[in-house]
């Protein structure tokens, strides 16, 4: 038994020292097999246990187990050490110049006018509006007559039109969509719709483009009031420009609304104190609106004594210019990719 214990101690010391010197995981694995494996040296010694007395056997067994455990611990510590060293090495080898530019991923851009229209659509969808659409070429009835603008109405001068024939033209505003929407819905209500689109006027200078975009809005129901118009537009302007914005209504005239109003939004640059952008007024003109004229309701077949409504027309370019601080209308139609890339 003494010899056996001696052998065990020797093997333990030898194994420990060899384990400590190992530099690679594979070597460690081999040594583990050599000393602790089924055919390993420790097992070989223990095979001689049968010759021991029943008294000694458990003692040697216990010692052998302790040795095995202690060696396993050394292996596991060594394994951990090796792994850490390997990871450290790997990390060092894999170090890169993080200041180099990233791989380019090609991404496109949505036109700023579409972006504004999308934003407006989202706001109104959230308030339960449908999105309407209509043709850019309109007939005189939808563009003018049905909007309380009979032939030779002086207000037709306000909008110089591109005519196709005596009776058809490029629509001068998105308001014909009011006429189309009502014609499609009558006698049903409520009507809640916005209609974005291209519109055309015979104007071409630094501040006018012969084609531009509007978003028309129309609401018809019982008891719709000018206060509802004001509240709706206030909400829209706050969502578009920021919660700190206010709006102001000024009396105006449109043949298809009565009462009519111009709507100003408080200037975001000076916060309403007055600056160059708002010509020192603190306010920016943003859209025209009003209560749907009873003549317009009646022409569409609605009962104007029972139903009321409001309508508005937003200028998309104007909003985009104010929101993004663009001071030249022409850049929208220039489509320089460096400009488009900013959005």
């Amino acid at each position: 038994m003494e010899q056996m214990l001696e052998d065990l101690k020797r093997i333990e010391a030898e194994a420990k020292s060899r384990f400590e010197q190992v530099g690679k995981q594979e070597e460690l694995n081999e040594l583990r097999v050599k000393y602790l494996g089924k055919k390993g040296e420790l097992t070989a010694i223990l095979k001689g246990m049968g010759k021991l007395s029943g008294e000694d056997r458990p003692k040697v067994g216990q010692i052998a187990n302790e040795i095995r455990q202690s060696l396993e611990e050394v292996i596991s510590a060594k394994t951990k050490e090796l792994k850490e060293a390997a990871l450290k090495r790997q990390i060092e080898e894999e170090k890169i110049d993080i200041s180099l530019a990233g791989t380019k991923l090609e991404a496109g851009h949505i036109h700023p006018l579409t972006r504004i229209i999308d934003e407006i659509k989202e706001i109104f969808l959230g308030m339960g509006y449908e999105i309407g659409e209509g043709p850019e070429i309109e007939n005189d009835y939808n563009n003018f007559e049905g909007l309380n603008l009979p032939k030779d109405h002086p207000a037709r001068d306000m909008q110089d039109s591109f005519y196709i024939t005596e009776d058809t033209l490029l629509r001068t505003h998105t308001s014909p969509m009011q006429v189309r929407t009502m014609a499609a819905k009558v006698p049903e209500y409520p009507v809640k719709v916005i209609c974005p689109g291209r519109v055309f006027r015979r104007d071409d200078d630094a501040t006018h483009s012969p084609m531009f975009h509007q978003v028309e809005g129309l609401v018809i129901d019982e008891n719709i009031s000018m206060a509802d118009l004001k509240g709706t537009l206030l909400k829209v302007m706050k969502q578009l420009f920021g919660e700190d914005r206010e709006i102001r209504l000024r009396p105006s005239y449109f043949p298809f609304t009565e009462p009519s109003t111009e709507v100003d939004v408080s200037c975001g640059i000076c916060g309403g104190k007055g600056c160059r952008t708002c010509s020192d007024t603190g306010w920016l003109e943003i859209l025209g609106a009003g209560m749907v004229h009873p003549n317009v309701l009646e022409m569409a077949g609605y009962d104007s004594s029972k139903l009321q409504g409001f309508a508005f027309g937003l200028g998309v370019e104007r909003i985009a210019m104010l929101k993004y601080g663009i001071d030249d209308l022409r850049v929208f139609y220039d489509n320089d990719i460096r400009f488009l890339g900013e959005f």
Binding site: L125, M127, E130, D221, R248, R250, H293
Partner: peptide, 30 residues
């Protein structure tokens, strides 16, 4: 309505409160 406009403007558009349409719910859709 033309007389109502006279009332609205003489009373002052600034006196009009900001409310939202009440009444039947509608569905916003594309």
């Amino acid at each position: 309505v033309d007389l109502i406009e006279e009332v609205a403007r003489l009373n002052g558009y600034d006196k009009i409160p900001a409310t939202l349409p009440k009444g039947q719910m509608t569905e916003g859709k594309k």
